[in-house]
Design a protein around this nucleic acid. Sequence first.
DNA 1: TGACATCTACGAATTGATTCGTATAATCAG
DNA 2: CTGATTATACGAATCAATTCGTAGATGTCA
Lengths: 129, 129
Amino acid sequence: MARPTPRPTDAELAILQVLWTRGPSTVRQVHDALSADRETGYTTTLKLMQIMAEKGLVLRDESARSHVYAASQARGETQRQLVDHLLDRAFGGSAAALVMQALSAHPASKEEIAEIQRLIDDYRKERAE
Amino acid sequence: MARPTPRPTDAELAILQVLWTRGPSTVRQVHDALSADRETGYTTTLKLMQIMAEKGLVLRDESARSHVYAASQARGETQRQLVDHLLDRAFGGSAAALVMQALSAHPASKEEIAEIQRLIDDYRKERAE
DNA sequence: TGACATCTACGAATTGATTCGTATAATCAG
DNA sequence: CTGATTATACGAATCAATTCGTAGATGTCA
């Protein structure tokens, strides 16, 4: 009964990335896009996308011979879900701890730091109201 | 040849959490600590910890009858590894995007925001040099 | 039309994570 | 010492993710 969409696995996430950036796509298009990094067969991508449709991670339009798939959730929605999970299982729910590790793991550029600063300012404003 | 320790799975991470907070512990101690949330048998915990020792995730002191296990990496080290992975597979390496999701997923407290602000200030200082 | 390409469906092998049962050894209580 | 308890070791079942091969339907084109 319409359970919430499960967290995508790594392979599934790679496919979602293509759908999010390209928009609705056929298996062929997704497979070609992934072929730069992956070296798996076409039917592997097909099977994964079929399973993702069963899970509700993607929607399938079967009106054309080549079915067209689209991500069922927005990128941000899925990202939030993944962050949430990581926060729970590894950071005891402390967003601050995660942010600290994120920054030390991948040194942010000047632009990114400015963006984060903007985020915090906004956040403080909301809190202040 | 001493390959880098692999990313821990969810079940392994739960065990590591106990080792990080309690310090070096026996299987019994870990299992009891986990029993609050888990309902798995003792031998399951044992087997997991044995596998973790093989993988290098934990170190085992066999001098006593009840072996004593300790996390092989500091909590922060593992956290960085996990954040790194998530950043790569879901955020295109953008720490700023991850920070944004982290904050919207789990609203941070005033104290946490102040802490993050401090981090950014430090970071800016380093950059300025 | 006939050969060839392309698509979906599907079964199945493989691998890794997780789980537990059972065997066996060490320890302890009385 | 003997029986009960508590350890470790280990084989094996289960389940999910990933991979691919093959079959059958559909479309293309010379």
